[in-house]
Measured scan of single mutants.
Amino acid sequence: MEVRTIKVFTTVDNINLHTQVVDMSMTYGQQFGPTYLDGADVTKIKPHNSHEGKTFYVLPNDDTLRVEAFEYYHTTDPSFLGRYMSALNHTKKWKYPQVNGLTSIKWADNNCYLATALLTLQQIELKFNPPALQDAYYRARAGEAANFCALILAYCNKTVGELGDVRETMSYLFQHANLDSCKRVLNVVCKTCGQQQTTLKGVEAVMYMGTLSYEQFKKGVQIPCTCGKQATKYLVQQESPFVMMSAPPAQYELKHGTFTCASEYTGNYQCGHYKHITSKETLYCIDGALLTKSSEYKGPITDVFYKENSYTTTIK
């Protein structure tokens, strides 16, 4: 009895394709271990004539594949690729409408935090270190965002349907971005203890939790000093293409032309909904596939993004 075979390709990165001759009487799992086709788990399936010449994702289970996976995804987590594939199996079914010149995501599976993050990423200057993220990001900007969303979920250790947080998501993504040249110098002034300067680099240099107003941050924000008295913390120097200011959701007025974009969060910790506000020729609110415009805006804002380049204080 002759062994019926077909020729397929296996890959971990969709760049390096490895030619395989597979036995049609055995499952993919018996031949390769966990195997995925377009995100779908085909591990328990036997090869079919229609699979001839198709590319299958496999887990990096030998040295060659491990090197290829690390170079593309910059992670050695053995569960990463499987999590990416199972997320992709959902995100490829989502709709990605162009809204006001940006790629958004039609609401499904509690994905409003991903839509808000995706919209924000198209408006701030950011370059990702893992080629996987950078490639998928370019495709997302062009309207094909399924891979990018699935990668975000995998890097953030999230599953489809789980509630997510924009600030946490951005923080994970910033860790995989090139923020080497970003720098922030802060000064804390206390009447009792004097003053202390701190220099922050990388992710810490672009994120701040405690106030939404970048102007206020430049002037000074009140913080408790270690001595128990009130101290003032203010920005001395900022070198970065953008800054992200966050605070627990509270009524906040966004003035046209003073910011790049913002995240609105309605609801409580267990259950809520994100919308995205962007400042173009007027203010726009993007909620999944829905767009509304207004000249002014007041609502429960939790993150505001500002364009920056270089700032030095005039406070002496």
Rank of each mutant, 00 (worst) to 15 (best):
N111F: 05
A262Y: 00
D77V: 05
K46V: 09
D109H: 07
H18I: 08
E125L: 04
K280P: 01
G143Y: 02
C261E: 00
P97E: 12
N268A: 15
I286F: 08
F9T: 09
L81P: 09
F148Y: 02
G228N: 02
L88V: 06
A289R: 05
F305G: 01
M207P: 04
H176I: 06
I223T: 13
S104Y: 03
Y36E: 01
T302D: 00
T198I: 15
L133T: 04
Y284G: 06
A247S: 10
G39N: 08
D165V: 01
L81N: 02
Y73F: 08
K275E: 04
T76F: 13
D41S: 12
D63N: 08
Y306R: 01
P34F: 12
S171P: 06
Y137Q: 08
M245Q: 02
Y306A: 01
N187R: 13
G29F: 13
E2W: 09
K255P: 07
S86P: 04
A87R: 02
E68I: 05
V203K: 11
K183V: 09
P248T: 08
N309R: 13
D62V: 07
S246D: 00
V3S: 14
T103R: 06
F32A: 07
G194M: 05
Y137F: 14
D62F: 05
A289W: 02
T314R: 14
T5C: 15
G164V: 00
N178V: 06
Y208V: 15
R184H: 03
G161D: 05
Y137V: 07
G143D: 03
G82V: 14
K201E: 07
V188D: 06
T11P: 05
M170Y: 01
V189W: 09
E144C: 09
M207L: 07
N157R: 11
L179I: 03
T302K: 01
S104G: 07
C112W: 01
F305E: 00
V21T: 13
V221M: 10
K54T: 13
C190I: 03
D180N: 15
T312N: 09
T116Q: 07
I6G: 06
A132E: 00
Y306M: 01
H276Y: 07
V188T: 14
E215P: 05
Y138N: 15
T27A: 11
Y252L: 08
T258V: 06
K293N: 10
N16A: 08
H48N: 15
Y155W: 05
D165T: 02
Q197P: 09
D38K: 09
K307S: 12
Q222M: 12
P78M: 09
S50T: 13
N157I: 04
G202N: 05
W107T: 02
D135G: 07
M209E: 09
E2N: 11
I277W: 10
V189E: 15
I301M: 05
L81D: 04
F56H: 04
N61L: 13
L65Q: 07
L121N: 03
